[in-house]
Amino acid sequence: MTYGTETWPLTMGLIRRLRVTQRAMERAMLGVSLRDQIRNEEIRRRTRVTDIAQRVAKLKWEGHIARRTDGRWGLKVLEWRPRTGQRSVGRPPTRWTDDIRRIAGSRWRQAAQDRVLWNSLHKTSVDVDWLT
């Protein structure tokens, strides 16, 4: 279920959809129906599966990409904005770099060069309230 999520921006809608899917999978594993009215906490205790939002937040690869020095296209694609002619109405969609900037600030590329600093930022991002 987590394949490819390291490149998705973690929006509240995405986190909610992932959690709903995870709960459905856990209920299927236990053979429990929604009609049984067993709380999610009890199902999580029985399955001993980690929360999908925390798992996805730990899987981010942006630090590895920012530390690359071999000229591959990953870092260039990170900031790429496609030209589509006309702008869409409303708020622009959340990009991967928007998540990174929210956690590490606008100078996230410099922060990613220091692995100790980057890991400490990453650990605090997993524990923040917006995942709950």
Rank of each mutant, 00 (worst) to 15 (best):
K123I: 05
R67K: 10
D36H: 14
D98K: 04
M25L: 15
T47K: 04
R39P: 01
V56T: 11
H122V: 08
D129P: 05
P9A: 15
N40P: 03
H64Y: 13
G85H: 08
Q54N: 11
R95I: 00
I43Q: 01
R81H: 09
T21N: 09
L131C: 02
E42I: 14
A24R: 15
K76D: 10
R83Y: 11
S120L: 06
I15W: 00
T132W: 00
R72E: 06
Q110V: 12
T11Q: 02
H122W: 14
S106W: 10
T69D: 09
L121M: 14
P9I: 04
V126P: 04
S125Q: 06
R44T: 00
R48M: 06
T97W: 03
D70T: 13
L34P: 02
W118Y: 03
W108V: 05
L121N: 02
I65Q: 02
R39M: 00
W130V: 02
G63E: 06
T47R: 12
I38G: 01
A57I: 01
Q54M: 04
T94C: 11
R67P: 01
Y3V: 12
L14A: 13
G63M: 03
W80G: 00
Q22H: 04
I15Y: 03
R101T: 10
E41C: 00
H64I: 07
W108F: 15
R83G: 07
T50W: 14
D36R: 14
V126M: 11
T21E: 10
P92R: 15
M12D: 06
P9L: 07
L121T: 06
A66Y: 07
R16E: 09
G105D: 12
R109F: 02
L121K: 13
N40R: 06
